[in-house]
Nucleic acid binder design. Sequence first.
DNA 1: TAGGCCATCTGGTCCT
DNA 2: AGGACCAGATGGCCTA
Length: 175
Amino acid sequence: HAPAEREAPMARPRPRGGPRRPPLRRGRRGRGTAQRIKRSRRLKANNRERNRMHNLNAALDALRDVLPTFPEDAKLTKIETLRFAHNYIWALTETLRLAGAARLGPEAAAGPGGGGPVEGSPSPASSWSGGAASPAPSASPYACTLSPASPAGSASDAEHWPGRFAPAPPPRRCL
DNA sequence: TAGGCCATCTGGTCCT
DNA sequence: AGGACCAGATGGCCTA
């Protein structure tokens, strides 16, 4: 199909990459009916696949929108978004747990937390100071330490997480 | 220029 | 049969 068709507007301007390359024209010699049908099915499948990936990206964008970043308009990569979301959820869960424990007394605070932040990640008990009472993302100290400029996720983990959420606690399944 | 990130194409597999 | 999902391949753009 025409390149113009492939230039469908993205959900948001791409900070990386560029316009899509023109379609590959591999094995276009087939002129028979069977070949045309096959080609037609392939093109339809390509369209569906493109649409599917757009939906996936839209969901990823929606996820980015609810994650705090600094600066505000910094765009996380896909892998960063997934890892960040995973750890952010974990941090919020810890916050809720600690908030509940604070109400029940110190013994409850030592209750089951399910692992903890992995090495390199801020400890909820120490770093989420004051966060227990206000789980709002924007008020989170984690949000302030987020640095989209750091190459998190591109190599093995802990060394790349100094400025953002560290990978998830070991017992949990990491992305 | 190399490496990272990305969109797209493609063929295979599974499911309805 | 046709659609959804997946992973590998490919090539473009950007940054260090």
